[in-house]
């Protein structure tokens, strides 16, 4: 047990150093710097003079080569300092803290909905495997799965924000809230919820289609096993066989899926947050890359990597819970 965690920790730290080093090198070698992208390219009239530019380069450490820059970043990290965002003039930790909530709101709701719907759907699909209703619903799910999110988002925006404008069904086009910060909290909660409906729908339908197919495929694999025949020979009914015996065994692969979704749960979705201008982590990531905001890029990379590693750890630990054949040593 202890050796397992020690091994995991060492492996995790090595992975983190490799990933962050790689991303830092990549970011620094992308064309453009925070200065050129921010000022020079977006607005040619505001070209700063060479002396100022040199001064700024020194301040942000852009005059050093990327390995030196990375070593500095790593040194600061060890002291608990993720640096300040260049474009947003804010500590990176504060920036991330502000964005976690909105991302989690969308992803958490979506994850919950996905599992609440896809588990019964997968059970239903494998119980009625091959029948007409199952084939029809599987086809529908497959179509949904192959339907790109951004197209679906666009359709939903047109329907609910344009066609249904002025009706009770109208939903906001984008953003997280229209109300001022001093509005009553209940009204604000309702407003945020209304804003969240479309992004949550968009994020849910794809994972829903994927997860229910995944569950169905695993269930179909499980019901072919000998122990299912034993359960039926004991006199267990079809529902008990499916849920108690087969589904309990599919938890083993499902736990992996759950572990893999941990980074996305807090990290949010770049595409959806971008389309719906949702002030979350995914959008911050996208913008920080566009702005060559190295400290923010690195802070987010670090966060995603840590979450991914934690997700794997969580999956490993859940494995031991759902599969008695597995232990942590």
């Amino acid at each position: 047990m202890a050796t397992y965690f020690l091994r995991r920790l060492l492996l995790g730290l090595t992975t983190l150093v490799v990933i962050t080093g790689f991303v830092y090198g990549l970011a620094r070698n992308m064309p453009g710097t925070p200065l050129t992208v921010q000022l020079g390219e977006t607005d040619p009239s505001r070209k700063i003079n060479p002396e100022d530019q040199e001064r700024l380069r020194k301040i942000y450490g852009l005059d050093k080569s990327w390995p030196v820059g990375y070593a500095q970043w790593l040194g600061n990290l060890l002291q608990g300092d993720l640096g300040r965002s260049i474009s947003r003039k804010q500590p990176v930790t504060q920036l991330i803290a502000e964005r976690i909530g909105p991302s989690f709101l969308i992803s958490g709701t979506s994850l919950l909905l996905t599992w609440l719907i896809s588990v019964p759907l997968g059970l239903y699909a494998s119980a009625r495997s091959g029948r007409f209703d199952e084939r029809a619903s599987s086809l529908l799910l497959y179509v949904l799965y192959s339907f790109p999110t951004f197209v679906a988002a666009l359709f939903l925006q047109i329907i609910f924000a344009v066609w249904l404008r002025g009706t009770a069904w109208e939903l906001p086009l984008f953003g997280m809230s229209d109300l001022p910060a001093d509005a009553p909290w209940l009204a604000r909660v309702g407003d945020v919820a209304r804003h969240a409906i479309l992004p949550v729908t968009c994020q849910t339908y794809v994972s829903l289609a994927y997860d229910s197919r995944f569950i169905k495929a695993n269930l179909e694999e499980a019901v072919r096993q000998d122990y299912i025949r034993t359960a039926r020979a004991k006199g267990a009914g079809p529902w008990r066989v499916l849920v108690h015996h087969a589904f309990r065994n599919t938890l083993i692969p499902l736990v992996t899926l759950l572990g893999l979704s941990l980074p996305a749960l807090i990290g949010g979705s770049v595409i959806i947050e971008q389309i719906f201008t949702w002030p979350g982590m995914g959008r911050l990531f996208f913008e920080s890359i566009r702005e060559r905001d190295y400290p923010t890029i690195m802070g987010l990379t670090l966060m995603f990597s840590v979450l991914t590693l934690l997700g794997q750890l969580l999956a490993d630990m859940l494995y031991c819970v759902v599969d008695p054949r597995v232990s942590l040593d």
Binding site: Q225, Y227, R229, A233, V322
Partner: peptide
């Protein structure tokens, strides 16, 4: 039929290694 299976007629299979459910005691 379900009350016959396992109740009045028991069955033993060829494959002891795979015939028991791995996740239950």
């Amino acid at each position: 039929m379900r009350s016959v299976r396992g109740g009045r007629i028991g069955m033993i299979f060829q494959e002891p290694m795979t015939s028991l459910n791995p996740v239950f005691t």
